[in-house]
Every structure is written in C-alpha cells, then in structure tokens.
Design a protein around this nucleic acid. Sequence first.
DNA 1: CTAGGAACTAGAGTCCTCTCTAGATCAACC
DNA 2: GGTTGATCTAGAGAGGACTCTAGTTCCTAG
Lengths: 156, 156
Amino acid sequence: MVEVPESLSIGQVAERTGLSVHALRFYEQEGLFVNAVRRGPGGRRIYCQDDVDWLNVCIILRASGMPLTVLRRYADLVREGAGNVDERLALMREHQERVTAQIGSLTESLDLIRFKVGVYEDLVSQGDAALRQCHGPSLPPGEARTPGLRHEAMVE
Amino acid sequence: MVEVPESLSIGQVAERTGLSVHALRFYEQEGLFVNAVRRGPGGRRIYCQDDVDWLNVCIILRASGMPLTVLRRYADLVREGAGNVDERLALMREHQERVTAQIGSLTESLDLIRFKVGVYEDLVSQGDAALRQCHGPSLPPGEARTPGLRHEAMVE
DNA sequence: CTAGGAACTAGAGTCCTCTCTAGATCAACC
DNA sequence: GGTTGATCTAGAGAGGACTCTAGTTCCTAG
C-alpha cells in the first residue's frame, strides 16, 4: 500500500510529524530520541520509520501536557530497555492522572463558559434594551450549573 | 451566614482566590480588573467582593487556557459596559471552541496513555520474563483504540 | 519608641518550549 | 561553474505568565 522508505531526511520527518525542522534538532539535543539519530554523508541526520513512530508518541504525550523533562525521562527508560517497566508504569500512570484531572478541570470550566455564552446569546437576541437589566433578575439556572460562583460576576 | 466585609486587603484576596499577592499586582498592572482597584491610606489596595468574584471568573478562564491578552480584552469589553455584547459573545464562543477542542484532544491522548498503562501493567504482572516478547504479538485491541499509530512504538 | 509584619514600587529573573539567526556545507541540476 | 535549496552547528531571542528582589513605607502592638 504505502511505501515506507528506510531512510528519511529531517525535512521528510518534519513533514510527516508536523514538527518543525528546528524542533526535531531541539528534541534530539534534549535527548528525547530513543535511538541515537544516525548521520549520513556530510553529517546529515537519517531517520527511520521507528523514529517517526516514536515522535508521534512524543507528540501525543506533549499535547497532553507532559513536560519535556518527563518525556526525556521516559525516553531514557525506554532506551535502557527491559528492567524498568515498573518505573515506566509509574510515570505513565502519573501522567494519566494529570490528564484525567485536566480534563475534569476543563470540563468544569466549560460550565462557566457555556453559561456565559448563553447569557450573551440571550442578550444579543433580546436586543440591547435588555442590557439595562443586567444586574436585575434573569438568572435562575446559573446556580445549579456553577455552584461556587456568585451571580454578580456571572453576568458581566 | 458568611460575613462579607466590604473591604479586603491584598493579602485577604490572595488568600481567598488562591492567587499570590504578586500575581494580584501583576494582574492589575496587566489591566485585568474591570474596576480600578481603589487605594486606601498609604496607597494600599482595597478590594471588594466583586473583585474576588471577577477574579474567580478570571481564574477559571485562565485555567481553561485563555491567554492573558484575551482575558485583558475581555476585561476591557466588560469595563466599557453595554454595547459590545456581540463581541463578548464572539470572544467567549471562540474560547468555548478552543476548550472543547482541547478536551477532545486530551481525551484522544488519554487513549494512548491508557493503552500504555495497560501494556505496562500486563508486563509487570507477568513478571520480567514477558519483556523479551516485547516486539512480538500481544497487541490485539490497540488498533481500534489508537488508529493512527503504528504498533512498534506502542510497546516501548 | 521600636519591632514586626504587610504592603508598596520598579524592574530583573525564571521556566518552558521552542524559534530564529548567522554563517558554513553539501548535493543536484543547468 | 554557479545557483538553489536543504542541511549543519552554536547560540541568541521570543513570548507567556508569573515570581522574586531590593529597598522603602506604613500600620499596629507592646
């Protein structure tokens, strides 16, 4: 189906990972690769598909907020090979918890955001006249959806 | 029920928002307050409950990834008062989309993370002997859960 | 009066993650 | 041979969001 060439240039890897050429060199310098990047004639970097696969994992971990230091630690562990699976597990579990918490926090925030969008939608659809009632009534459902917040700030 | 004093010191506001005293001054300097912070004798900042409410909104927006520049823009709009509800709505909708997208992306990432946690859990529970089969079989459900990724990188 | 603690200001420093610059090399094509 | 375009290195710069420093001022209690 798809041809998978054995050797990839930095530009090709950049293209298929979405990382910049700069970032690839930076990642290498930061020790984020599991296998040392080989060099071809003229000292040019030669990547293989495995590198791209690994980078795609890195990208996902980064996208989910794993700091480079942790990612480096993880790469170190993988590079070391067998014998540290428990540590990898701990690291990944910790990250999982952070991500789960982050999703929870964002979902909570979304409550407020949705509420505000709703308020503004109502105001827009009612025309500007309604704005004068800004600090009046018109807030029955807010409390249930955003329990911790006082009303005054909610309508601004 | 709870007493709400009219005047709050910077320390009190820090305490009840969780922001640092430094951050409060920084936020003020960045124009993130809707109402100018009043000053008491000796030039000390005097906050009121409205400020705390507003800050709590800010905290949620920040926690959901709204940059300070956008938050400032939002504060500007609110400070201006009526007549820009459509712009507020646009701003908040945009943020809502970003947050929704972010939750989606994190949830996707979580698939990979869970998968890796699962792999490591299996390896740990099976003992180290299983590690030698690392690049062998044992990966049936991975594809459905993480479609875009090749298998090799998944077991590292 | 004095000590302690909180607050003030302006501005520098930090941390993270790149991103860009500058100048040199290299391979390929016309 | 010359140009183009990709790559190389080392290191500087950027931007976001604080955080901390230094030196000062002010209030309150003993």
